[in-house]
Amino acid sequence: MTIFAIDDTDKAPFAGILPAAPKPFVLGNGEGEKSLVFDQLFTILLSADETEDQFGAFTMQGNRGDRIPAHTHLKTHEIFYVVDGEITVWMDDTADYHSKTTLTTGDFAYVPAGTVHAFQIHNSSKVFGCGTAGFERFFHAMGQKSDLTEPAGIYVPDFEVMRAAGEKYATVFQPDFQFRD
């Protein structure tokens, strides 16, 4: 069952980086489909194309920064595994689970679909993420294609770009959401 469009136009600028089919491959350090979103570098390592719509895998690298706006993925389950560094993750299921947890190297967090969440990077950090197949292209829809190997510069998408990416990838931005700290 495909949750997101198979013919996703957000992958076109990256054609040839990943095999686009379920066959073995290897990426070297720093390789993958890269997009700069705000001040964070997202690198897609594996997409729905390679996993027959099972999951997507990516990394996020960033330096100390502000908390990203609260948001909810309506169809996507997401993980955070801190490869290196320190981030705080806020999660609220709007029922009985409310948390603010600082994750350091080796820590893991799971955000089920429908959970309001946000994160903030405290120092230079690298996070491995995995999510529902197809969602990984959300970062391309929001960001700017990049050849960087480390996060540098800032790309702030227009509100219309954010809104369109949110609609396409079933993500609702909630900048006024109040987490229980």
Rank of each mutant, 00 (worst) to 15 (best):
V83H: 08
P112A: 06
Y97L: 10
F108W: 13
W90D: 13
V116S: 12
T101Q: 12
D84E: 13
W90G: 09
T88A: 04
T101P: 00
T102G: 04
I87H: 02
G85S: 02
N123Q: 15
T88Q: 05
A113V: 02
T88F: 03
H98W: 01
P112E: 06
Q120C: 11
K100P: 00
H122G: 12
I79H: 00
T101K: 13
D93A: 01
S99M: 10
A95W: 01
Q120L: 06
V89A: 10
D96Y: 01
G114C: 10
L103A: 10
T115C: 12
L103R: 08
Q120D: 04
Q120P: 01
D96A: 11
P112S: 05
T101L: 09
D92E: 05
V82F: 11
A118T: 08
I87C: 07
D96C: 00
I87D: 05
H122Y: 07
D96E: 13
E78Y: 01
Y97A: 06
F80Y: 13
E78M: 02
Q120K: 15
D93Q: 01
M91K: 09
M91Q: 11
A109V: 03
G114E: 09
D84G: 01
H77N: 15
G114R: 06
G106N: 04
F108N: 05
A118H: 06
H122F: 08
E78N: 02
D92N: 12
F119C: 07
E86D: 09
G106F: 08
D107R: 04
T101A: 06
Y97P: 00
V116D: 09
G85T: 03
H117G: 01
S99N: 08
D96P: 00
D96N: 14
G106D: 04
W90R: 06
T104S: 14
E78G: 01
H122Q: 11
V111R: 05
I121C: 05
E86S: 14
H98E: 14
T94W: 00
D92H: 10
D93P: 00
A118C: 09
L103Q: 08
T88M: 03
T104F: 03
V116P: 02
G85H: 02
V82C: 12
H77W: 05
I79E: 00
S99E: 13
E86V: 09
D92K: 08
D92I: 12
D107L: 07
E78Q: 06
F108G: 06
V83Y: 06
T105Q: 13
D107S: 15
T105P: 03
T104G: 10
Y97E: 11
E86G: 02
H117Q: 13
N123R: 15
Y110F: 15
E78H: 04
T94N: 15
A95T: 14
T104I: 13
G106V: 07
K100I: 04
H77G: 07
V111H: 05
N123H: 07
F108S: 10
Y97F: 13
V83A: 12
